[in-house]
Design a protein around this nucleic acid. Structure first.
Lengths: 217, 217
DNA sequence: CCAGACTTTTGACACTCGTCAAGACTTTGT
DNA sequence: ACAAAGTCTTGACGAGTGTCAAAAGTCTGG
């Protein structure tokens, strides 16, 4: 259910009555397990250098199993992306809902932002990698677009609430706000590889510089 | 000389007195020719799907020649990146130098920005691809960092001049300004694949929304 | 408890990749 | 004009890829 929106992976014919009752859940559990191993590998190696055999090596299965649960490599990656998106775009909802002042919202947002930057670096590296790949691989585009939209809405919720709490209104539209914040975050993700210590505080500084400029009376 | 900074491609021993007089230039011309074919192919297919054979196919040579002029694939790509950078970061210098008002600077900048977005899309796609790859492939990092710095300085020159012409001062530091503008431009490059007609005007709108907010008295 | 459905392993296939070496071709100094 | 140096083509190699089929193993309904 957590991955309901990722469950549409073209089930390859088999599924009519071939799976009984709890079978469908088991298949789904296997897919999730494979997807998690795949995401782990993809985050470490990047899209280009990740092979199905390497994914299987990082799982409890052998490489043949992948084709039992996924039609082909793109189907797996696509499933991974959709599975991933269900876990990532609601990260700041609690902060948005509970903050009672602009400062509280900003610091809460930045705390979570830095936390995910540090703790989930591979996942973010993968995301920027996949978005770049989507420029060349059309099959990835719909999934990437969907996540991009989700992230845009996420940023928009934060900015709207921030404006509310400061008695102002957003001074840029949602795509612009997303592009700006995402630009800063991508810079941080790329920079984190070279300089893990300084990067979080730089990101904080820069977001703090920018946030107030995105709203106006 | 245009590619002087890209000429340090580890010449593989051969070069002592083996090349006479104009030989060094010929080698350099071949390298440039191969780099241009490589950049063309890379821009179309992306880093992951570009093979040396495909690069050679898009040139007047055969695949073996690549290893005569470059030590290995990374050496070629690295050379390409350095060759590319010499052509890209001085694009707005004239606009910056000749503009006599903030509006003139802004419209001139946006004209060139949209022009390169439309006319050199593959090159920009490649750049964002390579920057993503550099997160996984350490050997790419120094070249990517160098270009990033060049682009940051380019944006900073524009913003400084913009502030000057409006009688203000930049309200964000150089890395921040670069990350913001780059975020908008990357969004445009990714979006251009899906929607070539609307994208340029959207980019223009958004830069126009943002530019004034990056300076203050 | 056994036959049939489901799951997983194993090994092979056709292909592409980067690399390199041997030789053919071309240019150049003398 | 001839030999040497330089340039380019050709073909092969080993490794790694995605994919698939056949066999082995596992589970389960009757």
């Amino acid at each position: 259910m957590a991955s309901a929106s990722a469950a549409e992976s073209e089930r390859s014919e088999r599924s009519e009555r071939s799976v009984r009752v709890s079978g469908i859940d088991k298949i789904e559990r296997r897919r999730v397990a494979l997807a998690e191993s795949a995401l782990k590998t993809l985050g470490e190696l990047g899209y280009a250098r990740t092979s199905l055999r390497e994914i299987a090596n990082n799982s409890e299965f052998t490489h043949g199993v992948v084709h039992y649960y996924f039609r082909d490599k793109i189907d797996l990656i696509s499933y991974c992306v959709r599975y991933y998106k269900t876990k990532c775009a609601r990260r700041y909802d609690e902060v948005v809902e509970t903050a009672t002042s602009a400062e509280e919202l900003a610091t809460g947002f930045l705390a979570k932002l830095n936390q995910t930057l540090v703790e989930e670096t591979p996942m973010h590296k993968l995301w920027y990698d996949l978005r770049a790949q989507s420029m060349f691989e059309e099959q990835l585009r719909p999934d990437v677009e969907a996540i991009d939209k989700l992230l845009e809405e996420m940023i928009w919720r934060i900015l709207s609430r921030y404006a509310e709490l400061t008695g102002t209104k957003p001074a840029v539209d949602a795509p612009t706000a997303y592009a700006l914040v995402d630009g800063l975050f991508e810079q941080a993700v790329v920079g984190y590889a070279a300089n893990p210590e300084k990067t979080p505080s730089l990101l904080t500084d820069r977001i703090m510089q920018v946030l107030p400029k995105l709203v106006a009376a």
